[in-house]
Amino acid sequence: MSFDYDKYLRPGKLPHIWCPGCGHGIVMKGLIRAMDTLKLKKEETAIVSGIGCASRLPGYIDCCTLHTAHGRAAAFATGVKMARPEMNVILCGGDGDGTAIGGNHFIHACRRNIDMTYIIMNNYIYGMTGGQFSPCTPTGHKASTTPYGNPDPNFDIAKLAIGAGATFVARGTAFHANQIDKLIVEAIQHKGFSVVEILDDCPTTYGRRNKYKSVIEMMNRLKDVAVPVKAAEKMTAEQLQGKVLTGVLYKEDKPEYIAEYAKVIERAKAAK
């Protein structure tokens, strides 16, 4: 049966601005399916984003949305969640927005363990601003500002999030479209800060500079590098060379920030 995406889309906004073959549309579809699975009410769901290609996503979805300053999605979203704890707050953005410009906000949102879900679409580059290298551009790969290859080692977003204290970390790819909504559902249900990294493709500014002939080649690369966590347990370190683990990578229960803050308010009231 065909899935009715229209009921979650703002009328008259399509076609979207993303380039032909960009995976952000696939991720947006996954998010809509996840919202439908959880039966999230539009008035009780807030999608917050910064600046960038991926951050244009909230403009198309018909619920409470907030498009904020570059990299500051986590800061604004924390404000939304503190003021209205009953809201389901979902953040979205790209790798440059989340880990470079907003790197500080990102790690501290992870540390605080506030009940939100951050969907990071990692396309290895700053797409909208003209293809500059981001902290996620792999070493040696080319961008508009590194035409002879990027000398920097790249971030592993999932490890960064785990290290900073996020309590749910998952990774998917735009190729594994069926898995995206399942990961997002699990992330939203988790009480605490959840990070879902989706490996994506950017054919326009990343692909053509790094000798990917087509969108299909980029999608097939995502298929080749992804290894599910369970399958990786049986593989040797040599076999895992150059591969990326997908699925739920980390999950733990820790005190959640809103609940802890409510206790602080109680204590302050009792002290008077």
Binding site: P15, C22, G23, G25, A177
Partner: peptide, 17 residues
Amino acid sequence: CMQCELRCPDFAIKVIT
């Protein structure tokens, strides 16, 4: 199999069964 509908990034395909 709905693969085209699932993967289309542009919301341009519907497979009606």
